[in-house]
Design a protein around this nucleic acid. Structure first.
Length: 471
RNA sequence: GCCCCUGUAGUGUAGUGGCCUAUCAUGGAGCCCUGUCGAGGCUCCGACCCGGGUUCAAAUCCCGGCGGGGGCGCCA
């Protein structure tokens, strides 16, 4: 049986063929008996015949039911099924009667259908649907998320999550090709791993613990332990009361860390990975992009195009970025954070992917490396920390890490943190430590770019934000 | 935490103190027709977030609560 993307699926007890398979290979299957199953997208016809439009994960196919050809009761049950009910039918593949075309118009390519001889309703759908699956009415995001199980059946939404899976696949694929290995770090941690951000406290037996805000310190320990090149795709939790289109309190972070590398080295890894992802999507997944665009068109939204970015991505150092913002009329001084409205000014010049390397050390966490000889134009200490932005939005934050344990401990003290709270981490540096670097990328942010989604919640299955913990 | 906007059938909307017995689309129920194909035709169903207040009169104005959206802040 042919599955999604042409993959080979074993027949199951519920179907011998997928709908997409009959749709595509119907010409060779005419007269063959098949059993298929799917959701009832439409059930038309109330007389002696009935058209049942079925949908499964591979596509749509019409089933044609005639009272004379089957058990009367079975016919009546299927004819009376509500939209989205799951239905299994058995019948023979036939060529569909061609539609009437105007004089002189070319005949459309042959289509196929199933002449049903038997079937059953597997589960009847309740009516009315809280979210129409094929209806051309706009649905608010909140309603959609409350009914994600149905929202997900909508073609363009489904396509977004297929695309998400592809992006992760291509990203993995690329990193593995560069010698990175996949790892997992604990999500239950004993103390604030970095300070700064707010953690979710949890009860861990008789002691207090927190949900991990980042795999940062653990992936470094793995590298120090000799794994050299690691990556992790996993959840990160932030207890911040933000409420924007791009923040969530639980998100999937795509992290890497590599030994014997500096900030520039890992920026190169990242741009090669993103280039690979875009190239692969461009080559293999235009059908998913088309589904998304089909919907955008119906809503009069701007369509998305997968433009493979050229390498290398522009590098705009923090100092340069400040100059650009100032030249654009923005109010900013060296040492200030580059905020969203500042990013708009930079994005006007660099609309696509661009790195922002060499931030002031004072703005970066204690584990970021700095070279005492690298100072900003006002004399402030620079770091080897960088961001990757797409337009106004931050995708990644990364950098070379501090591998000198005495500097690490001094950095902690400089940031009012107690080195004694971090011995689980700093101990890893006491017996020789390779210089290393890495980054963390927000998967959903990347998906927003690729799908043109205006809200990060659209590309996260069950988003967790300030006011949503269900479903 | 701050500011602005907003809440009408299952869904998405129209509505600017009396023209509201509340619009339209989609949907649901049913009938007719039917090898339809975004099927079509007809009938019906279905809503003003909650609680106060102003007024002769409130979906509409005011206050509070709850929900939603946007912006800011916060944010390795």
């Amino acid at each position: 049986m042919t599955g999604r993307d042409g993959s080979d699926w074993e027949a199951t007890n519920y179907r011998t063929h997928t709908l997409g398979e009959v749709r595509d290979a119907g010409a060779q299957m005419i007269g063959h008996e098949v059993t298929v199953a799917g959701y009832a997208e439409a059930v038309r016809g109330r007389g002696a015949i009935c058209f049942l439009m079925l949908r499964d994960g591979t596509g749509h196919l019409q089933a044609f039911l005639k009272k004379d050809n089957m058990n009367e009761e079975t016919f009546a049950t299927i004819q009376g099924a509500s939209r989205e009910s799951t239905i299994q039918v058995t019948g023979t593949v036939a060529q569909k009667r061609p539609p009437k075309v105007a004089e002189g118009e070319p005949n459309p390519p042959a289509e196929f259908e199933i002449n049903v001889t038997d079937g059953q309703v597997l589960a009847m759908s309740q009516t009315p649907l809280p979210v129409g699956v094929v209806d051309d009415v706009h649905v608010g995001l909140d309603t959609r998320l409350d009914n994600r199980h149905l929202d997900l059946r909508r073609q363009h939404v489904n396509a977004m999550f297929q695309l998400r899976s592809k992006v992760l696949q291509y990203g993995r694929e690329h990193l593995i090709s560069e010698g990175f290995m996949e790892m997992n770090s604990p999500k239950i941690i004993a103390s604030a791993s970095e300070g700064g951000t707010n953690l979710f406290p949890i009860k861990y037996f008789e002691t207090d613990a927190y949900l991990s805000q980042s795999p940062q310190l653990y992936k470094q320990l793995a590298v120090l332990g000799g794994l050299e090149r690691v990556f992790e795709i996993g959840p990160a939790f932030r207890a911040e009361k933000h409420d924007t289109y791009r923040h969530l309190n639980e998100f999937i972070s795509f992290d890497i860390e590599g030994a014997w590398m500096n900030d520039e080295d890992v920026m190169c890894v990242q741009e090669r990975m993103i280039h690979h992802i875009w190239s692969q999507v461009n080559a293999n997944d235009q059908n998913l992009i088309d589904m998304i665009n089909e919907y955008k068109e119906s809503q009069n939204e701007e369509k998305v195009a997968v433009e493979v970015p050229s390498l290398p991505f522009p590098r705009i150092s923090y100092c340069e970025a400040i100059d650009i913002v100032k030249a654009g009329g923005g109010e900013i001084e060296w040492g200030d954070d580059i905020e969203s409205h500042h990013c708009d000014l930079i994005a006007a010049k660099y609309p696509g992917f661009h790195f922002l390397p060499k931030w002031p050390m004072s703005m970066k966490p204690f584990y970021i490396f700095h070279d005492e000889n690298e100072k900003g134009n006002t004399g402030g200490q620079l770091s080897r920390g960088f961001d990757l932005n797409y337009g106004r939005d931050e995708m990644t934050s990364g950098g070379q890490r501090e591998h000198r344990v005495e500097v690490l401990e001094q950095n902690l003290r400089n940031m009012d943190l107690d080195p004694l709270d971090f011995t689980f981490y700093t101990d890893g540096f006491r017996y020789g430590a390779p210089p290393h670097a890495g980054w963390g990328l927000g998967v959903a942010r990347l998906l927003m770019v690729l799908t043109g989604a205006g809200n990060v919640r659209e590309v996260v299955l069950f988003p967790r934000d300030r006011s949503r913990v269900t479903p």
